[in-house]
Computed example of a mutant assay.
Amino acid sequence: MRIALTGSSGKLGSVVLNELRAAGHDVIGMDIVGQRGPGFVRVDLTDYGQVVDALTAVNDQHDGFDAVVHLAAIPAPGIAPDIATFHNNMPSTFNVFWAAIRLGITRIVYASSETVLGLPFDVPPPYIPVDEEYPARPESVYSLVKHLEEQLAIELVRWHPDVSITALRFSNVMVPEDYEAFPYDADPRDRKWNLWGYIDARDGAQAIERALQVAPPGFDRFIIAAADTVTTRPNAELLAEVFPDVPVHGDLGEHDTMLSIVKARRLLGYDPQHSWRD
């Protein structure tokens, strides 16, 4: 596919760029920062005119796209003032979705967030492992925007039934260099905020490619996490200490992720290959 990748200079985006190209796709990176050169377009996604222009054609770099992967955003709460996070992330996503649909691009995959599950779980989750079945519980402006983006996607595909929009609720993104800090064993409460989850950026790229390949028209959302936790402490021990009253659904295993990837495995064919334990 010829793919427009927003946020191509970010932590996840830079890995996704390399992985999608290695898989044979023609990928044009788009970001507000980055090095000038072939395969990159500098664009302010909060400016709708720039987004339309960038997705339409840029000199001799491309003349349109088969798909859009939208990863650009202020990537977490607390990085910028809440109003800045909202004013950057919400318009950027609307502009990308709206421009893509107007231009006839019917395959969109984008970064939602594990935060819509209720992070940092100061109010315990309804059950463990958490999944996509219970209503969103945003606890920050950043998370609220992610929830609103999903609602936006739901309405857009209702208006345009031929369009596929897939929201990937990525866990805490890690690259191999980050594994020097693992395992997180000292105090289980240090990482209870996302149920001791993470995602290797390379597996994040795999999930994106799977969604590009197989997601049908319409909207769907998927938790995307590694298959294991960030600690050597057994799951039963963690839950007994931190979430003793939360119901457990099924067998958690000793170190299996508590951010359920069952749906992503079943419908996308997602199969995480990377672990800090390697």
Rank of each mutant, 00 (worst) to 15 (best):
T106F: 01
F219V: 14
D256K: 13
R191V: 15
H70I: 02
D271F: 00
H25W: 13
D200F: 09
A186N: 11
E237N: 01
T6R: 03
V41L: 15
Q206A: 11
L238D: 04
Y270C: 10
F65S: 00
L168A: 06
P124A: 15
V43W: 00
E209Y: 14
F219Y: 13
H25D: 07
G104R: 03
N59G: 04
G78Y: 06
A240V: 13
A236E: 15
H255V: 14
P247V: 05
P91N: 00
V58L: 00
F243S: 02
A226L: 04
A225F: 02
G269Q: 09
W98G: 00
I223D: 05
V262Y: 08
A23Y: 04
A99F: 01
L268T: 10
M258W: 09
E149Q: 05
P188I: 14
G39M: 04
P244F: 03
Y48V: 09
L212C: 06
V242A: 02
M174C: 03
N89W: 01
F222K: 06
R36H: 13
F121W: 15
A23L: 07
L17D: 14
F40M: 11
S9R: 08
V145C: 12
P176H: 01
I165D: 01
Q151N: 04
P129C: 14
P81Q: 02
I208Y: 10
T231N: 12
G118H: 07
A227N: 06
I101P: 05
R265T: 15
R107M: 03
R169S: 05
S140P: 05
R158C: 12
N88W: 02
K192S: 12
A167F: 06
D245L: 14
S113D: 04
S164Q: 02
R266Y: 13
Y184A: 10
H255L: 15
K11M: 10
D47V: 12
V69G: 02
V262S: 14
F222C: 11
F65W: 00
L168F: 08
H147K: 11
G7M: 07
G253Y: 10
V246H: 09
D82N: 10
V16H: 10
N89C: 04
D44H: 04
I154Y: 04
L55E: 00
H160K: 06
Y184E: 12
L17N: 13
G10F: 07
R221E: 14
I223E: 03
D203E: 15
F121P: 14
T93I: 00
R137E: 10
D53F: 01
R221P: 03
M258V: 08
P125T: 13
Q50A: 11
G197T: 09
K192T: 13
E237H: 09
Y127A: 15
Y142D: 05
P38M: 08
A215L: 08
K11E: 06
V262R: 14
R107G: 01
I128M: 07
N59A: 13
L267N: 02
E209H: 14
E177Y: 00
W193S: 14
K11D: 04
H25T: 05
T6G: 05
M90Y: 08
D162N: 07
F182L: 07
G204W: 15
D162C: 02
A205R: 11
L103T: 02
H70R: 04
F222Y: 15
D47S: 07
L252M: 07
F94L: 02
L148F: 06
Y48A: 06
D251L: 05
D228C: 09
E180C: 02
A240L: 06
S92F: 01
S14Q: 12
S92H: 00
H25F: 14
D131S: 13
D278I: 08
